Amino acid sequence: MPDRQRADARRNYARILAVAEQEVAAHGANASLEQIARTAGVGSATVRRHFPTRRALLEAVSAERIEALGARARELAGGEDSRAALLGWLGELVAYCVTARGLAAALSYDGAEPDPVHENSCSAAMEEAAGPLLHRAARDGAVAADVTVSDLVTLAVGIVLATEHHPDPAARADRLFRLAVAGLSPRD
């Protein structure tokens, strides 16, 4: 019987995640957990058992995208121009967040104490991926030494969330990102 329960739990998880991906794509980070449960054919308690917080659900929905961004950071790390590599990755993060509704919310730093049961794994993955890009750019003097990955991710998230309801969110986010980039470089 325990094997059957584990198989049922795995099926429920997969079904909930598939429905959640559709709902987040349609409604963003505020997708209804109750609607996800109904569409998946499970109770709200089952959704909460698998995803104890909204952030946990958003992180699961965003996992593949986060991995792709991490892989891209690793690709760019070997480039000649450390500033171009960092800003290229950050621009891709902004563009990805614009098209992947819910990703910005999954990456956001809410300022609360980290939850030991469920820390923000998306942000932790971005810290790990972008760290080498940022350190190299700072070492080369291409970015101010006090800039952190957290600063960069927060900047990207802020731009994406601020442009989410704009008629052309991608163009607006790109414009704001380009404006912000000028402030990232150290002043002579």
Rank of each mutant, 00 (worst) to 15 (best):
L134W: 06
L134Q: 01
L134D: 01
L134K: 00
H135L: 14
H135S: 14
H135D: 15
R136A: 13
R136H: 12
R136K: 12
R136Y: 06
A137V: 03
A137E: 02
A137D: 03
A137H: 02
A138K: 09
A138L: 01
A138P: 02
A138W: 04
A138Q: 12
A138I: 07
R139L: 14
R139N: 10
D140E: 15
D140V: 02
D140T: 08
G141S: 04
G141K: 05
G141V: 02
G141R: 01
A142R: 12
A142T: 07
A142V: 05
V143D: 01
V143I: 15
V143H: 05
V143N: 02
V143A: 08
V143Q: 06
A144G: 14
A144S: 14
A144N: 09
A144K: 10
A145L: 09
A145R: 08
A145M: 04
A145H: 07
D146K: 00
D146R: 03
D146P: 00
D146Q: 09
V147R: 00
V147M: 04
V147T: 07
V147C: 02
T148Q: 05
T148Y: 02
V149N: 01
V149T: 10
V149C: 03
V149H: 02
V149E: 03
S150N: 12
S150K: 13
S150G: 15
D151Q: 03
D151K: 02
D151A: 10
D151H: 12
D151F: 13
D151C: 12
L152R: 08
L152E: 05
L152H: 09
L152A: 11
L152G: 08
L152Y: 09
V153I: 15
V153D: 03
V153A: 10
V153N: 06
V153Y: 09
V153C: 10
V153T: 15
T154V: 01
T154D: 12
T154A: 09
T154P: 00
T154G: 11
T154Q: 06
L155G: 11
L155T: 11
L155H: 10
A156K: 02
A156V: 08
A156M: 07
V157S: 06
V157K: 04
V157Y: 06
G158E: 10
G158D: 13
G158F: 07
G158I: 00
I159M: 06
I159P: 06
I159K: 03
I159R: 03
I159H: 03
V160N: 00
V160C: 01
V160D: 00
L161N: 11
L161I: 06
L161R: 15
L161A: 12
L161F: 06
L161E: 15
A162K: 04
A162F: 07
A162M: 04
A162C: 06
A162V: 00
T163M: 11
T163C: 15
T163G: 07
T163K: 01
T163Y: 09
E164A: 15
E164N: 05
E164Y: 08
H165V: 05
H165F: 08
H165K: 12
H165P: 00
H165S: 12
H166I: 00
H166Q: 07
H166C: 01
P167I: 09
P167V: 10
P167S: 07
P167A: 07
D168P: 11
D168S: 15
P169Q: 12
P169Y: 14
P169H: 14
P169D: 12
P169A: 13
A170K: 13
A170L: 15
A170I: 03
A170N: 09
A170M: 14
A171L: 13
A171Q: 13
A171F: 11
A171I: 07
